[in-house]
Amino acid sequence: MKATAKAHPIQGLIKYHGMRDEERRLPYHDSISVCTAPSHTKTTVEFRPDADEDVYLIGGEPVEGRGAERIEAVVDHVRGLAGFDHAVRLESENSFPSNIGFGSSSSGFAAAAMALAEAADLGLSRPDVSTIARRGSSSAARAVTGAFSHLYSGMNDEDCRSKRIETDLEDDLRIVAAHVPAYKETEEAHREAAESHMFQARMAHVHHQIDSMRDALFEADFDRAFELAEHDSLSLTATTMTGPAGWVYWQPETIAVFNAVRELREDEEIPVYFSTDTGASVYVNTTAEHVELVESAVADVGVDTDVWSVGGPAEILSESEALF
């Protein structure tokens, strides 16, 4: 009753914001994302019938407080599906920095859900597993199905699940990750989202954004898809900043990256667009042909960079790759 899984984090393209059901983490509206590779989370889980309590470790450190509660919600759901109450040991590690806006919760809960479902021998499809991962993080549902994926909203697991979107953009997309290490608290921002006076304005246009993004992906229209993602980042941030806490995640380096991207696009006609999730770090989306030039321009801002491509779905790894 042991399994190891790997999942890639997501970059939100049309992002969800706010939850109408916090326990099941049901979002107010649909969302679309793309997974980034080789960045990943690896997780090993083992159900232990003779153990007295659960053990959760991330990066070798015990998880406590709200983090442990979120993991427990996923573990308990799997135990309920499997029909047993065995204690579990869960160990996880990331290949990239967490809590700076690069989607570590998405890959973390996707890998956990995939490994838990395998260890419990549930025999589920990835869309099925996405409903398990969603209980830890709504974004994790899309990390389970991988690549470009669409999480549908709904009030139950049959409706609120993720499905992959096939598109020819998978091979050509390159993402320059601009690291701006400012800690952020995504969960609290989601909790108060509906209290922003901008939230209803976002709800009024997000459904059209979803339809437009799906169409751009089907047509493999790079500029239209990532222009939409850039504008959605601005919309999300406007809603976040106008909530009760007035969250402002962007840092001076964030704005400097935006300006560098716009200069490349306007002065040199390079296909390049910025995107942010809830954090200060920036995804800079471009094509394989132009990625070296773009990375150089972003690095000149004075931030650390990585170059990522599209990551696939969560997967089960061999026993030899287990963390314990």
Score class of each variant (00 low, 15 high):
Ala216Ile: 06
Ala204Gln: 06
Leu81His: 07
Ala51Val: 04
Ser235Thr: 15
Gly83Asn: 06
Ile58His: 04
Leu57Ile: 00
Thr305Phe: 12
Leu234Glu: 07
Asp221Gln: 11
His86Ile: 02
Phe218Pro: 00
Val45Ile: 07
Phe102Trp: 00
Leu26Arg: 06
Asp300Phe: 02
Asp172Ala: 07
Lys15Pro: 03
Ile316His: 02
Leu236Pro: 05
Ser98Asn: 05
Ala216Asp: 00
Ala37Ser: 15
Val206Ile: 15
Asp215His: 11
Arg126Gln: 15
Thr242Cys: 12
Ala115Thr: 14
Leu81Thr: 08
Arg89Gln: 06
Tyr152Asp: 04
Asp172Glu: 15
Asn99His: 10
Val298Asp: 01
Asp21Cys: 12
Val78Arg: 11
Met155Trp: 08
Arg24Pro: 03
Lys15Trp: 00
Glu93Arg: 12
Thr43His: 01
Ala117Arg: 10
Gly67Phe: 12
Ala297Glu: 11
Glu269Tyr: 06
Arg161Leu: 03
Leu116Trp: 13
Phe109Arg: 05
Glu170Phe: 02
Ala288Gly: 13
Ile58Val: 14
Val310Ala: 05
Asp159Asn: 06
Glu158Asp: 12
Tyr16Cys: 09
Lys15Phe: 02
Arg164Phe: 00
Ser107Leu: 08
Ser125Ala: 15
Thr276Leu: 13
Pro9Lys: 04
Leu169Pro: 09
Gly312His: 04
Pro38Tyr: 08
Ser149Trp: 01
Val129Pro: 10
Tyr283Val: 06
Asn156Cys: 01
Ser138Asp: 14
Pro181His: 08
Thr287Val: 07
Leu13Tyr: 04
Phe102Met: 13
Ile10Pro: 00
Ala225Arg: 05
His86Pro: 04
Pro97Ala: 05
Val298Thr: 07
Val310Ser: 07
Glu292Met: 05
Ala117Pro: 13
Thr242Val: 09
Val248Ser: 08
Arg265Asn: 08
Val34Leu: 05
Ala256Pro: 11
Glu22Lys: 14
Glu91Tyr: 01
Asp300Thr: 08
Ser95Val: 02
Val176Thr: 10
Ile210Glu: 07
Trp247Gln: 13
Phe47Gly: 09
Asp30Asn: 11
Ser318Arg: 08
Glu289Leu: 05
Arg134Ala: 10
Ala141Phe: 02
Glu158Ile: 00
Glu118Asn: 13
Met203Thr: 01
Arg202Glu: 02
His208Tyr: 06
Ala133Thr: 12
Ala143Tyr: 02
Glu69Met: 03
Asp128Leu: 14
Ser137Tyr: 09
Gln11His: 04
His29Lys: 03
Met203Tyr: 04
Phe102Val: 10
Ala322Ser: 13
Thr44Pro: 07
Ser153Trp: 01
Lys15Val: 05
Phe324Glu: 12
Glu158Gly: 14
Glu319Ile: 00
Glu315Asn: 01
Gly101Arg: 01
Ser95Pro: 02
Glu253His: 12
Ala51Ser: 13
Glu64Met: 07
Asp30Ser: 14
Gly311Gln: 08
Leu57Glu: 14
Arg25Met: 14
Phe148Val: 06
His86Gly: 05
Ala299Leu: 04
Ala120Trp: 10
Ser39His: 09
Ala68Ile: 10
Ala280Val: 11
Ser33Trp: 01
Val307Tyr: 02
Val303His: 03
Ser106Leu: 09
Ala147Cys: 03
Gly136Tyr: 07
Ala3His: 01
Gly123Val: 06
Ala140His: 03
Ala177Leu: 15
Ile255Met: 14
Arg24Leu: 15
Glu23Thr: 11
Glu269Thr: 10
Val144Lys: 04
Glu22Asp: 10
Asp157Phe: 02
Arg79His: 10
His86Glu: 07
Asp76Val: 07
Arg202His: 03
Tyr249Arg: 06
